[in-house]
Design a protein around this nucleic acid. Structure first.
Lengths: 227, 227
DNA sequence: GTAAAAAAAGAACGTTCGATTGTTTCCTGA
DNA sequence: TCAGGAAACAATCGAACGTTCTTTTTTTAC
């Protein structure tokens, strides 16, 4: 046997990409073997090389495509939003919802940068910097206008992004709280943390109920999964 | 040749542990080979097995010892601190300083849980839960007393810990800001985010001047690492 | 001074890895 | 209809992996 019936290049390419994202997300880039990936999409490992140059470039393609998508969608979400506070809220809203629905991609882009070789890593880090700049600009603007009490915009940027991104470590779509509720909670935390005290930004109403939600990491078997 | 001159069991064990932490921190558990670790401490790879059962148990030992240290030091830092706000500040202060000085251990404990096998991972997750509980309890207490406006203590706990822990992704001891200054910035963010608005918890003065006095933690005290 | 214990070397193992190559089969457009 | 290109198989490479085992050397205890 050689080519299997019904095989299709474009479809296979997409399947490889999706399976790769899931496997890297669950096991990590180093721990994912190409044989594992191949078997996931019903191929032999050698056939994968029709679809990428090598394992490293597969990772980079995933990271780069994700970062480009993230940046462009963020720009779209903040386009036309005026004023520091609205822009801050728009960023928080976008970032949270994006990270809630793209957990795997986000996790890879954040955690597997270390697995990229130097040139690729530099590209990824620059893209991340551009994204962070969007929040930092909003904070600087607010500080200049007196709306925010932010003495170190870069530190606050890192802090806020870390807080928001952390949601992908525990969020489950079938959890008790809706996306809207979570966005409201996080928005309160962020806005309260940076808003100037005198600006009595009325905090939204209470949200309700006890707690829940396991903080378990993307748990799955460790080590390589033998096919 | 077999045994090298000046060799010493206890010293080697410590060297292996330290090198292991650094290598896992920089390359990840899966990407670190035992030959690499052995050469780092001047051994042959086979000799490592005098010091651990296997690669997996080396990782678990590192994670477990770190978590035990983290929890015991956190309990010491908060011991005798009364009231929600002081306890919250004590937690923030401790957590930040600990994470600034133990970047590698913290990174491993957070990121390599996935590389632990199921039983070991369960132990690590339970330890993390116990640690998180300390912050959650402070938030619940504050919410009950009306000092904090926290509708979902568990969500806020995850958010705050993510924000604080993120500092180990970029903090450098030789950076522009001192540990005290960073603690002050993060404390403002956290306290502002959860404090009840009406409780005009006067935000601390500008940070340009000496940072606010650290809560009470007698342990990790910053050594003015202007660094 | 000597024998036991400790520490490490060094060789080898079976396995798996990423990657390459040559071949076979399927699909498609002129 | 039938070549030519696309898609996948199958076999294989050398290197590296974690691990085990035996041997050799150093240290320690009596």
């Amino acid at each position: 046997m050689a080519r299997t019936i019904g095989s299709n290049g474009a479809r296979t390419a997409k399947a490889i990409r999706q399976a790769g994202v899931q496997l890297i997300y669950r096991h990590g880039y180093e721990a994912m073997s190409l044989r594992q990936l191949a078997s996931e999409v019903g191929l032999q490992s050698g056939s994968l090389y029709k679809y990428f140059e090598n394992k490293q470039s597969l990772l980079f393609d995933i990271v780069r495509d994700h970062m480009e998508d993230l940046i462009s969608k963020a720009e779209a979400a903040m386009d036309g939003v005026d004023g520091p506070l609205p822009r801050l809220k728009a960023f928080v809203d976008f970032h949270l919802r994006y990270h809630m629905t793209r957990k795997a991609h986000v996790f890879i882009a954040n955690m597997e940068i270390r697995s990229l070789d130097a040139p690729h890593r530099a590209v990824a880090i620059e893209m991340r910097r551009r994204y962070e700049q969007m929040l930092e600009d909003a904070l600087r603007l607010g500080a200049a206008e007196g709306a925010f009490r932010v003495s170190e915009p870069k530190v606050s940027t890192y802090a806020i992004i870390s807080m928001l991104t952390g949601i992908c470590m525990w969020y489950r779509p079938d959890g008790r709280l809706t996306q809207d509720e979570l966005v409201a909670i996080y928005t309160d935390l962020v806005v309260g943390g940076v808003a100037s005290p005198e600006r009595g930004a009325a905090k939204p109403a209470e949200l309700s109920a006890p707690a829940e939600a396991p903080p378990t990491a993307p748990s799955v078997r460790s080590r390589r999964v033998r096919a």
